[in-house]
């Protein structure tokens, strides 16, 4: 597990910055809630009558005036987008950076099989995602309790689980792409995450584009749907994770045979 340790060390700063940023924004939102709650009657009406904007963020389905509704939309967007960016960046860079930064020659002339390198790098990415989500989840629960609201354990857990799956899927897809790249990867990672996010918004707005939910992982992280249905859409989650697995398999197939230049 030398490489896992090494990767975690290398990614430490980025990890801390992303985790701190996401957590900070989420806590800020949660702590703003009590203040907004009083005015929520009006705000809630306003938010639910903004036409397609309301639909785009799923605010037509849940009450923005309750903690759960508020959390599903606000915090969902922060963790959804922030987590997606982090996972995509982690996945897209982890293999390609060795060639981009010319360290591949160092790493791959050590007696470590390519498959082992891929596995340890994958573990390091997944570990970082698990850790980020655990920290954010813990802090969220603590701050909900701190503002005197009851913690909606089941819904909260399901929402966070959905975001975790989303990050794993994106990381898996980007990991696969990473094996094919030699340089310039960050743009692709951010691009994929952003594209997926907007695909979901399009799917929300236009009924004829609803099939996009099958493509974007944001389809199964919709807080409103999770709260309403009381469960995750297993079909979408499984399909999404399958995309991630395909990415990972592609990474093994490609990287084990790749010419390193």
């Amino acid at each position: 597990m030398t490489l896992v340790k090494h990767e975690l060390k290398q990614g430490r700063t980025a990890f801390l910055i992303w985790t701190a940023s996401i957590a900070f924004l989420m806590l800020t939102c949660i702590f703003l809630f009590p203040e907004m709650k009083g005015e929520m009657e009006e705000v809630g009406d306003m938010f639910s009558s903004m036409g397609s904007f309301t639909v785009a963020f799923g605010m037509d389905k849940i009450n923005f005036g309750t903690l759960l509704g508020f959390y599903a939309v606000e915090c969902g967007n922060i963790l959804g987008l922030g987590g997606a960016f982090f996972a995509a960046l982690c996945g897209i860079a982890v293999l390609s950076k060795e060639e981009k930064e010319h360290t591949a020659e160092f790493l791959l002339t050590h007696p470590v099989s390519r498959a082992r390198i891929i596995t340890e790098k994958l573990i390091s990415v997944l570990l970082q995602i698990v850790l980020l989500n655990a920290i954010v989840f813990g802090l969220s629960v603590a701050s909900i309790a701190a503002i005197g609201e009851t913690v909606p354990w089941k819904e909260l857990w399901m929402m966070h689980l959905a975001y975790f799956f989303l990050q794993v899927e994106l990381a898996g897809i980007c990991f696969g792409i990473s094996a094919f790249l030699r340089r310039g990867s960050i743009g692709i990672g951010l691009g994929i995450a952003t594209m997926m996010y907007f695909l979901n918004i399009i799917a929300n707005i236009t009924e004829s584009a609803e099939f996009l939910k099958y493509i974007t992982p944001f389809g199964y992280t919709e807080g409103a749907d999770i709260v309403l249905n009381g469960e995750l859409d297993t079909g979408l989650v499984v399909l999404g994770l399958a995309f991630g697995v395909i990415g990972i398999v592609a990474a093994y197939c490609r990287y084990c045979k790749k010419d390193i230049q």
Binding site: T2, H6, Q10, H102, T103, E105, T109, H110, P111, V112
Partner: peptide, 24 residues
């Protein structure tokens, strides 16, 4: 020994040497 040896940014020399030994 590569003609242009490049190592991981931010690491100290002793950490690189240790990493190399650990990988072996």
């Amino acid at each position: 020994l590569p003609s242009e040896a490049v190592f991981y940014q931010g690491m100290r020399v002793k950490e690189v040497l240790k990493l190399s030994a650990d990988l072996r």
